[in-house]
Simulated scan of single mutants.
Amino acid sequence: MNTEYNFPISCRTVAGCDVKTIKEESVGTIKDIMVDTETGDVAYIVLELHRDFLNLGNKYLALPWEAFDFHGQQRKVILVKADKEKLENAPGFEKDSWPVGSQHQFIGEIKSYYGYDRRKVLIE
């Protein structure tokens, strides 16, 4: 899966991958990839935390695509570019209560929290 080149990657390949911090701390697995239906861009990635990670229980974290390193040296492992402290206070939701309705504000909060700009879509 991981390569030194920037090839497209399938959602099926990403879903279920183990996620670790840069310090090799096991965080969880990729649960899903959410696509913005207006732009076609990845809105965010849903990270299912391991039960014992930060004692956050049934929380899913929503992270921008840019917060991950897909080109590491381990197969089936994706690195998250955030430390434990950042993940502990990250925007997320409960397993039984996924975000619904307009997602623009939620996506904006996610991007901002991790320090990424939300792309502006210009309609002509």
Rank of each mutant, 00 (worst) to 15 (best):
H104T: 14
D32N: 14
D18E: 15
V100K: 11
A90Y: 02
D36M: 05
V80C: 05
K23G: 06
E66Y: 04
A62H: 05
C11W: 01
D69G: 01
V35A: 06
K31I: 03
G28T: 05
D117W: 07
Y116V: 10
L54P: 09
L63N: 10
D52V: 11
D69N: 14
M34R: 00
E85R: 03
D96L: 11
M1P: 07
G28V: 05
F7K: 12
Q74F: 00
S102H: 12
G92H: 05
S102E: 15
F70C: 07
T29M: 12
N89D: 14
M1Y: 05
D41F: 10
S10M: 06
T39F: 02
F68P: 03
G101Y: 05
A62T: 11
Q105A: 00
G92D: 09
V121C: 02
S97G: 04
V27I: 14
G57D: 15
L54G: 00
Y44C: 00
R75Y: 05
N58T: 15
K76G: 02
A90G: 09
L63Q: 10
S97T: 06
N2C: 08
T29P: 01
K86R: 09
G40D: 13
D83A: 11
V19I: 13
K111I: 06
E24A: 15
E88D: 09
D96V: 06
F53S: 13
T3K: 07
T3M: 02
E109W: 08
F7G: 01
E66R: 13
E85M: 11
Q103S: 10
H50Q: 15
D32C: 05
D36I: 05
